[in-house]
Write a protein that binds this DNA or RNA. Structure first.
Length: 422
RNA sequence: GCGGCUAUGGUGUAGUGGUAGCACGAGAGAUUGUGGCUCUCUUAGCACGGGUUCAAAUCCCGUUAGUCGCCCCA
């Protein structure tokens, strides 16, 4: 019995998963850099209040999913449940609002939410996202979305679906909220249990309900358009036509709402059929009030976040395993003296940038050969008493099985030139 | 957080109340210093805790974890 296990909903990432992670991160860096985003690493913990203010004190994320604790100096701390709040904080704290008109960041790293784990839903999960801060321009929304789709394409997550909606400003939205309440309250008894609760807590979420009967009622509810000002509609119109102009396919869903309170105007969501219940691959939108909420200037911003684990699930395992021999060396030794010589050779091979391995337990030559084969080493250097006496070493080519004796003098140099030619 | 399903060597599985098997993996070896193929041997398991029973991997309860759906979200 081992004494310790991972905490629930957390994962050790290694082997194939680790490869997928770094592939995804490489794709992200490449695309984001091309789009002009620079990396920003914020701490994984922040003052709890940062998140309640940003995400909304009434949201589920804040109310029941945040990891929070009091540190030794009595500060209320929370493990970040998402990335945007920290980025906005860093943007203001480091005076990006004053030193440059526009700031574009990308981030990647772990996020924490204490939910019941499921496939595609972990307690520690990873997000990759971008944020553009300091602009109201609808083209920034379009660029953000374009960046998202480019990233997904680059990562190899084809087959996703992009959904768009316009949530309007806070004022427009609270007007809409009232309308929805007026509409749903008389029909309360026809709604499902969840929706009856939502009617009191968060009317918008009703629009998202999957219940068949609720959906029928929802279809009769007033659309948000009624409450939107011309300015909001115009903004959204520009976003759509900008997307059209670069050929990005999307669906509009007037019932799509987001669970984080800070969104305004444009919101979007990318889902993927491979995901099942946790179908959202990535999401984002514009958040025009957040910077000001944090005590900064009146300035707009937009961004998105993608769940790395979910993205990994969408990548049709198309990566082929390399069965060929790597261009690396394996040093097999026989006897104490040879082991010592081998270790020296190992070190000088590595010093020249060559991949080199050896089995220090140096049991039978057979087992060392097996180990060389398993590691896909292309060449094996055999060093034993016989060779040392003659001041040579044996070099065996694992691909064709051929071998030859070479002088021990400047062994590393010879092997380097050999590899260069290979 | 709620409901359903599941839990057997490292991995994948067989085993419906009576001696836990198999495959893969890993390790060693097959005339003394040469890998892959083959063969032999070794290795290691009923998630945890209770209960029923002469007897439990098997039935019951609880816990833990995973999974599916809900909720929520990336």
């Amino acid at each position: 019995m081992i004494l310790f296990n991972r905490l629930r909903g957390t994962h050790d990432i290694f082997g194939k998963d680790a490869e997928v992670f770094s592939r995804v991160e490489r794709a992200a860096r490449e695309i984001f850099t091309a789009f002009g985003f620079e990396e920003l690493r914020t701490p994984i913990m922040e003052e709890k209040e940062l998140f309640t203010r940003a995400i909304g004190a009434e949201t589920d994320v804040v109310q029941k999913e945040m990891y929070e604790f009091e540190d030794r100096s009595k500060v209320r701390v929370a493990l970040r449940p998402e990335g945007t709040a920290g980025v906005v904080r860093a943007y203001l704290e480091n005076n990006f609002d004053k030193t440059q008109g526009l700031a574009k960041f990308f981030y990647l790293g772990p996020m924490f939410r204490s939910e019941r784990p499921q496939a595609g839903r972990l307690r520690q999960f990873h997000q990759i996202g971008v944020e553009t801060l300091g602009t109201d321009n609808p083209y920034a929304d379009a660029e953000t979305i374009h960046c998202l789709t480019s990233f997904l394409d680059k990562a190899g997550a084809g087959g996703y679906e992009l959904i768009l909606n316009n949530l309007g400003t806070f004022e427009e939205r609270s007007r809409f909220k009232e309308e929805l309440k007026k509409f749903f309250t008389p029909k309360k008894t026809h709604l499902c249990e969840d929706c009856q609760l939502r009617l009191l807590k968060n009317v918008f979420r009703i629009l998202d309900c999957k219940n068949e009967f609720c959906r029928k009622i929802i279809r009769l509810s007033p659309p948000i358009d009624h409450c939107l000002t011309e300015a909001s509609k115009a903004h959204y119109g520009v976003v759509c036509s900008a997307l059209d102009s670069v050929g990005i396919k999307y669906e509009e869903d007037p019932y799509m709402v987001r669970g984080l309170d800070y969104y305004t105007k444009t919101v979007f969501e990318v889902s993927h059929p491979k995901l099942g219940a946790q179908g959202t691959l990535g999401a984002g939108g514009r958040y025009d009030a957040l910077i000001e909420t944090f005590g900064g200037p009146k300035a707009g911003a937009a961004g998105f976040a993608v769940g790395v684990e979910r993205l990994a699930m969408c990548l049709s395992g198309q990566e082929e395993k390399k069965e060929t021999y790597e261009k690396s060396f394996f040093i097999a030794t026989l006897g104490e003296t040879a082991l010592k010589e081998g270790f020296k050779l190992l070190s000088s091979l590595r010093a020249q940038g060559l991949g080199a391995l050896m089995d220090f337990s140096a049991k039978s030559l057979k087992s060392q050969m097996r180990s060389a084969d398993k590691n896909k080493s292309r060449y094996v250097v055999i060093l034993g008493d016989d060779e040392l006496k003659k001041n040579v070493f044996v070099l065996k080519n694992m691909e064709d099985g051929s071998q030859k004796e070479l002088p021990l003098e400047d062994a590393a140099g010879q092997l380097l030139s050999l590899r260069g030619g290979a």
